[in-house]
């Protein structure tokens, strides 16, 4: 026979093992998502990173042109 104590125990178990676990799981998933995705509306990722990538691409092209100039004898060394 289930006593009221048993009922309370079952409800508490259900709360702790199922509901709380689901809440924890959701929190864990949200934490993982925030790590694996870029932060929303971040100035660093929205503005600075693309500018850096373009600037570095330009510097790289300039350095390659210089090295090619050395190879072709345009730049003397």
């Amino acid at each position: 026979m289930f006593t009221p104590e048993h009922h309370k125990w079952i409800i508490r178990q259900f709360y702790e093992e199922v509901l709380l676990d689901e809440v924890n799981r959701q929190e864990r998933m949200n934490a993982l998502r925030s790590k694996s995705h870029m932060p929303q509306q971040s100035v660093f990722f929205e503005k600075i990173v693309p500018i850096l990538l373009i600037a570095m691409g330009i510097v790289m092209a300039a350095l390659i042109l210089f090295a090619a100039g050395v190879l072709l004898g345009i730049v003397r060394f």
Binding site: S36, M38, F45, V49, L53, G57, M60
Partner: peptide, 14 residues
């Protein structure tokens, strides 16, 4: 630069 651009475009793995 290319790798950084690919991840940046997909908005993943900052």
């Amino acid at each position: 630069i290319w790798s950084a651009y690919l991840f940046w475009r997909k908005r993943v793995l900052p």
